[in-house]
């Protein structure tokens, strides 16, 4: 087993005077399911935005080890190249291509791996391009089926029920063929039964697609149930990390979530 799939080293991110991420160093092992938790405004989503290239850190860097090949620094790369390197993500406030159908959403995700050029599909002159288009459509359909979304295949993405939209976002992310998946609050808005199913769902995804997963979540049942390791942020700083059982008992974590009195009680 080689080094971690993802490591953050001394990340600092500022918004004006606000220190959103303060000297964060953490890592995710290959094949692991790791949680990133913390109270509202702790800086969790900001970490995702740095990792995926939307924000440039003031200092520090992110290193990513793809499935094959050596670890490389991805800080400074534009988001589309970070995706090409093998990182995919979902968003806290679902961001689907709303006017497109479910299958078109997944197909658009597969474009990053498409080899044929855009003009090859205008005239039916390139059998390889036509074959690739057909394959992309077929594997998009298969992906929807795998995630239990086949009945929404040709429905507009924005018309799907909430839980289905979350799953569609995951399907779209998976169609970019990632080796690393970042999930920003996958259980948000789900009912207890749905979030219970989410546990096995996430584990199966990891095994089937050989992923490493970093997830942000407020639902403690989900976090404790699925994560093998947990990192806790508060006001941009790391306050604890460890196995779920250790985190549950950690007084600093309890204090950050519930206030001082609860921690002392």
């Amino acid at each position: 087993m080689s080094g971690p799939a993802l490591s953050l080293r001394g990340l600092v991110l500022r918004f004006g005077g606000l220190l959103a991420v303060n000297d964060l160093t953490m890592e995710v092992p290959r094949g692991g399911i790791v949680g990133l938790i913390g109270p509202n405004g702790a800086g969790k989503t900001s970490v995702f935005n740095v990792v995926t290239g939307f924000y440039k850190p003031a200092s520090g860097y992110v290193e990513f080890s793809p499935q094959e090949g050596p670890a490389r620094k991805i800080t400074g790369l534009p988001p589309h190249e970070i995706c090409r390197a093998g990182l995919a993500r979902t968003f806290q406030n679902i961001r689907l291509f709303g006017n497109a159908t479910a299958v078109e959403n997944v197909m658009a995700g597969a474009y990053v791996r498409e080899k044929s050029r855009w003009w090859m599909n205008i005239l039916p002159l390139f059998p390889s391009a036509m074959r690739e288009e057909r394959e992309i459509r077929e594997s998009a359909a298969a992906m929807l089926e795998r995630l239990g979304l086949e009945k929404y295949m040709d429905a507009a993405a924005s018309s799907l029920p909430y839980g289905a939209q979350r799953r569609l976002e995951i399907a779209r992310a998976l169609s970019t063929k990632p080796s690393f998946l970042l999930l920003d609050e996958p259980a948000a808005g789900m009912n207890p039964q749905e979030s219970a199913e989410l546990l096995t769902f996430i584990r199966n995804l990891r095994d089937e697609f050989s992923l490493s997963i970093l997830l942000i979540e407020h639902d403690m049942k989900v976090v404790m149930g699925v994560c093998e390791h947990i990192w806790v942020l508060d006001q941009g700083s790391l306050i604890a990390n460890g196995k779920p059982d250790e985190i549950k008992k950690d007084p600093r974590v309890i204090e950050a979530y519930l206030g001082k009195e609860a921690a002392n009680a």
Binding site: H80, C83, F97, A108, Y111, V112, I122, I136
Partner: peptide
């Protein structure tokens, strides 16, 4: 033909949500 190809999906994706499109490697 252009809009029915996957590149057509990509063009519309960029219109619908540029941030998501960039995240999807576009």
């Amino acid at each position: 033909r252009l809009m029915k190809s996957n590149f057509g999906n990509v063009i519309k994706a960029v219109r619908d949500d540029e941030t998501a499109a960039r995240t999807m490697g576009i």
